[in-house]
Design a binder for these strands. Structure first.
Length: 404
RNA sequence: GCGUCGGUGGCGGAGUGGUCAAUCGCACUUGACUGUAAAUCAAGCACCUACUGGUUACGCAGGUUCGAAUCCUGCCCGGCGCA
């Protein structure tokens, strides 16, 4: 009798009373992740501007890299020959690899519609006409997604089977099924079509993954359904029943619907497996909503990208360090000075680094922001273990959004 | 002193009779950023403004012309060459 052994172990330590949220531990071949946890994004096998040892010192327990980008450059076979991503990038903690499904959106409809996966406000705020000057670099078919490389324009087909092959070559601990991330602009009809395709791709991904018979790698299936709750439920039922090691929750959300969308999905997904909320985590409230509705891990490019663009996360909200008022501001960058960066560096100093275009500006800003989100989610975990999640949430958000 | 080239918005630098409040960089100001085509992108940047116009502007002062940053005269200032 063949018993499928999960490569990923997940144990729940404590739950938020009356909600779906929980604190737990994910165990992978490269160690544990105490959840809830924020997973920094290192798309191209690097968390931009930081050395891996710095990322670890900020409290990161894992990182997430990308199939599409590493397949194009330097190539997944090179990474495999180098001993896998862990060795290649000098990261011995758990690694997630995203499947490339998000690029079907970001290089496809997002490119011509100039939209983001996360929309604030109603339809009038995001429904835009196509930009003729920005041709799609990705088109979807049943077989997979045809990409035109953003680097050299060359044509590539990424299918579920190809994505899984690349991810096994990269050597991540937690890999994702190939899916199609839809646009907030898509019609209900298209969402349904895309969801069906994502479900078929999920089965193909699972079959491909199992053929490697590698008990050290866990495969997460991805729930889609966009902003339609019925489809979200349908997708959670379907993906949740396929025998994945855990789940990713993908697709587009609106600010107003995130809470309910996550609730309906996680109410259905098997409780004893970890759930990763894909690409969410720019605002503190996003983490609280994600956690209380049953999400265990989060990744988001916003903290690192916004850092490089001059937006700094503080307990009193985000600030634009390039604003003129910070030129002479000799107060500390961050109140969270429990690590080396925030202690002596002032806002005036970071302002100077940005204005003089010094490379350290990106590094220092990224340190501040990453530490902020990692500690925030760690503290959320702590509050669950201490049965004071609601209290912590209330206090943190009141100060952050200035409602004290 | 003579000759010659040149003086344009915070800076560099286009324009050489009308479509010029003046191309373009930089600087500056403010936004945006949510599974990274992102150390990126967008908007603004003389003054007033109901944003629709109006008022001053291209070293200074005159002049020619329907019309000048662009042509002429004088002056001031700078580079270079000759004394």
């Amino acid at each position: 009798m063949l018993v499928y052994m999960s490569a990923i172990d997940f144990k729940i330590q404590h739950k938020i009373e009356g909600k779906l949220g929980r604190a737990g531990t994910i165990t992978t071949a490269h160690g544990e992740i105490q959840t809830p946890a924020f997973i920094p994004v290192g798309t191209k096998a690097t968390i931009k501007a930081l050395l891996p040892e710095t990322v670890v010192s900020l409290g990161a327990q894992a990182e997430l890299s990308n199939t599409y980008h590493l397949y194009l450059q330097p190539g997944d076979e090179l990474v495999r020959d180098a001993g896998g991503l862990h060795k290649f990038m000098n990261w011995d903690k758990p690694i997630f690899t995203d499947s490339g499904g998000f690029q079907a959106f970001s290089l496809g409809s997002a490119l011509v519609q100039k939209v983001s996966k996360f929309q604030i406000g109603g339809e009038e705020n995001y429904r835009k006409s196509d930009d003729e000057k920005a041709p799609k670099k990705a088109t979807v078919s049943e077989e997979g997604v045809i990409f035109f490389s953003h680097i050299d324009g060359s044509k590539h087909l990424l299918s579920p089977e190809k994505s899984i092959e690349i991810q096994h070559n990269l050597g991540g601990d937690i890999i994702f099924a190939f899916d199609e991330c839809t646009s907030p602009n898509d019609s209900v009809e298209y969402l349904r079509e895309a969801m069906g395709r994502t479900h078929r791709w999920a089965e193909r991904s699972l079959t491909a993954h199992q053929s490697y018979n590698n008990v050290e790698v866990g495969l997460f299936g991805i729930v889609q359904g966009g902003n339609d709750f019925d489809m979200r439920k349908e997708s959670a039922e379907y993906i949740g029943g396929l025998g994945f090691d855990g789940f990713g929750i993908g697709g587009s959300f609106t600010k107003e619907d995130l809470n309910k969308a996550l609730f309906v999905v996680n109410e259905i997904l098997p409780e004893d497996k970890p759930r990763h909320l894909l690409g969410i985590g720019s605002e503190p409230v996003d983490f609280f909503i994600g956690v209380e509705n049953g999400c265990d891990t989060f990744d988001c490019v916003a903290p690192t990208r916004e850092a490089r663009n001059g937006t700094i996360y503080t307990l009193d909200g985000k600030i634009s360090i390039t604003n003129s008022k910070y030129i002479n501001d000799l107060t500390p960058l961050s109140e969270w000075c429990d690590f080396f960066a925030g202690i002596t560096y002032t806002r005036a100093y970071l302002s100077h680094l940005f204005r003089s275009k010094e490379i350290l500006a990106s590094t220092l800003a990224t340190i501040i922001n990453l530490r902020f989100v990692i500690k925030l989610v760690d503290d959320i975990r702590g509050s669950i273990l201490e049965d004071r999640f609601e209290e912590f949430k209330g206090e943190f958000l009141a100060r952050y959004y200035g409602k004290i």
